[in-house]
Design a binder for these strands. Structure first.
Lengths: 188, 188
DNA sequence: AATTAAATAGACAAATCTGTCTATTTAATT
DNA sequence: AATTAAATAGACAGATTTGTCTATTTAATT
């Protein structure tokens, strides 16, 4: 079963949209630039996506799925729940480095287009909630020091992750995320 | 000494730009909407600001100053450094409520326009650094429990603040910031 | 009161934006 | 091989964008 012709076009569009929407921003990226860099015709884009907003939604949905799969894959490298928690912070630092400290794609999308379409906000909320739930599960399995409750530790880790990525986008480095990792080592 | 005519115009422009750039976003706000809602002429805007980017920079500079003054005023309500630290989290929750959970103005500006002009990123970095320094000073005065070092506690508080505001913008509520406050009470 | 500076309304240019449409070519399927 | 569906290039509409410019009115200053 080889790839359908249509799927190749869709993939090229979504790949390009993902790259441009993230690096330049949704508003700063025109449809014409997307079709130019994706090397497809405008008619093809509007055959598969009703509007630019729909393209944004589709990008976020696909990104949400791939993003979560990457995190799951990353923490699967160790069995220890404590190490898995540390890996989440480590991973976010690595990703921000790859992304040249452009910040969280979900937060970016939310800031620019979160209020314009309910599907956008919903997708972002679901993604963030999944991360929270993942942390919660790992915390409950971690047998941590009980310096705080499971709920509080979960919250702390989530906030340090979110804050660390934001700090990375401001200061263009990942030392806040690295610091968060060291702090977490003391807390668990 | 009453207000100069020019200053009134500048204030109206900056007030409107601040409101629209935050609620709608920089890209989603046109110069024409700014002059319409500020109720001034287009020529007046371009007399005081060379470009839309310059207006953004001026908005951020004024906002940075006022923002920091508000925080200083807020924490001046108590003498206890521990309570001052808690007040920072409390204050950010209140502000996000007022802002209808639109997130951090600096992070928003950075995501949308941080790479387009070095002055924008510089202003945002300075603002965030000031917050970090403020927390650092308060931590050093707080005589906290020493569950972690001063540096680590400072980092934790900063990250929880940054992450809490981001979470507020995603989930449209301030309970993450409230949770952060309760966690901080345990840490100090 | 006369002069100077600033604010105004609004036309305008030039570029860009999203989205539509047509005519043609390419590829997959029967 | 014939048919059907999809991708292409590109023109086009209509709206919107930033920024400029002119002519006029308003306000402050000498």
């Amino acid at each position: 079963m080889t790839k359908q012709r249509g799927q190749i076009v869709i993939d090229k569009i979504l790949d390009t949209a993902e790259r441009l929407f993230y690096t330049q921003g949704y508003c700063n990226t025109g449809i014409n630039q997307v079709i130019d860099e994706a090397d497809i015709a405008k008619g093809s884009l509007y055959k598969h996506f009703e509007s630019k907003t729909d393209l944004m939604v589709a990008y976020l949905q696909r990104f949400h799925q791939r993003w979560y799969e990457r995190i799951e894959q990353e923490i699967s490298k160790t069995e220890d729940p404590k190490k898995k928690l540390l890996a989440i912070l480590e991973y976010h630092g690595q990703r921000q480095h790859i992304r040249e400290f452009g910040g969280c794609p979900f937060i970016k999308a939310n800031n620019e287009a979160g209020m314009s379409d309910p599907r956008i906000l919903a997708e972002i909320q679901q993604a963030k909630q999944r991360l929270k739930n993942l942390i919660k599960t790992l915390v409950s399995q971690s047998n941590h020091k009980k310096l705080m409750t499971d709920k509080e530790l979960t919250e702390t880790i989530y906030l340090m992750t979110e804050g660390g990525v934001a700090a990375a986008s401001v200061f263009k480095q990942d030392k806040d995320l690295q610091a968060a990792k060291k702090i977490l080592q003391k807390l668990i």
